[in-house]
Design a protein around this nucleic acid. Sequence first.
DNA 1: CTGTTAACTTAACGGCGTTAACTTAACGCT
DNA 2: AGCGTTAAGTTAACGCCGTTAAGTTAACAG
Lengths: 248, 248
Amino acid sequence: MPKLADPLRAAETEASILDAARDILAEDGLDALSMRAVAARVGLSATALYNYFDNKQALVDRVVARGFRRFESYLWRALEGVPSSGFDRLQALGAAYLRFSRENEQYFKIMFTIQPEDPREIEQLPGGGGYRILRESVADAIAAGQMRDADPDLIALYMWSSVHGLATLSLACDFSSECSCGDHDWAEDGMTGERLFELFGEFLAEGLKPRNGSGDPTVNTANDASGVGGTGRNGSRGNRRNVDDRAS
Amino acid sequence: MPKLADPLRAAETEASILDAARDILAEDGLDALSMRAVAARVGLSATALYNYFDNKQALVDRVVARGFRRFESYLWRALEGVPSSGFDRLQALGAAYLRFSRENEQYFKIMFTIQPEDPREIEQLPGGGGYRILRESVADAIAAGQMRDADPDLIALYMWSSVHGLATLSLACDFSSECSCGDHDWAEDGMTGERLFELFGEFLAEGLKPRNGSGDPTVNTANDASGVGGTGRNGSRGNRRNVDDRAS
DNA sequence: CTGTTAACTTAACGGCGTTAACTTAACGCT
DNA sequence: AGCGTTAAGTTAACGCCGTTAAGTTAACAG
């Protein structure tokens, strides 16, 4: 690996390599992201890339790090014009999180799948990758008296888990189609992660325990199996244990 | 692909191939899972595997499907002896979910990462893969009056998202060490996903909105930045926008 | 004894990440 | 002007990958 003395030119080439890698990833997925493909896209031979990156893993790590920066500024933009305290800000953050995961599916997948070769180098996940914004918004909401008085890190992590889980599951499984959850037909209104997150807002704010005269009745629609239905609509076949594959 | 007329022998060989693939995956990760490696482990040549599986993707899909079945029976076992209504059952489910994700890290990762070649074949995710158990437990809790009266699918999905997000983030980022969330030092008590899930129980049940005389005060310890701290401990450097990488 | 065929092998193709060796162009220096 | 140095890139090659084509072996049917 030569030393790449000219820093300007080197930085330009490096950036164009990273751009090419990002484009290939977004267009054709991680499997299509080969050193030869990236090199061809920037008009170099594959071995030339090794002047700029130690190996493929290092290149991918850089792509991921860039993804986290882009993710962070995406979240920042989502907060523009949203008042700086209360649940609105957190709702906007969650919605942006889900929107990003859908618009940048491949990016999002590798961001939380690839583990960097050198785990010391992660100033990105989650410290710089949006977590600070979330934590700050949580602290604001607590200070404004709109959120319970608990460890802001714990609350931030709780909200992050919920939204991240929803984003991940939305990518792995299409709720609104054949991969139906239960036998409830959600395809009717094209259930998306973002729509679900709106519905989850009530649960996040008020919890799951029953309460008298709870707020928003909209989430209580389409409820036909409560109070008397016992184990619910699936109760009849719910007890099949299917133990055959236990030791596999 | 010959017809494999002897069904008993064929099923045995197929099972041993799947076992080998599962073992390699668990021991050395997805990158080490090659047709040649699997074949060597069962004492065959790589091409022999094509008598039993169309291609590598089909083999991996079967491994994933087996993983889901194992996952499901794992969750079932976690419910043995737990009373069949109320939050206890859901708490046990969540804890088992996180335990499985830690004990079977590689398995868990590909279960929700790999997307099957033929998406019709997913009777596994999430229908058979534990979702039914969760939904049933939710319906039980609603029927017992221990949970609010809302669409059980919606509640189940909410809880699933929370736990799944926590599991995924726990694997991608070690909360208790260098990848510290915020500047809060959680390494003191070796923060794990399972421990976090215990702490989240209060939020899941009671919500995040403030309430007078809220229940468990243990989650309110270690809280030093609320009420007056404004934007929290990171407020000073929190406003760096870092817009440089916007178009990358 | 022969033909069929299930179950498997070896050989090979193109693509992958990566290394080694070589080329080319620009530069400083006497 | 001629020289060596070196940045930046090339081609060739290695071993591994998924996969296909062709050939081998053993059992069994007639």
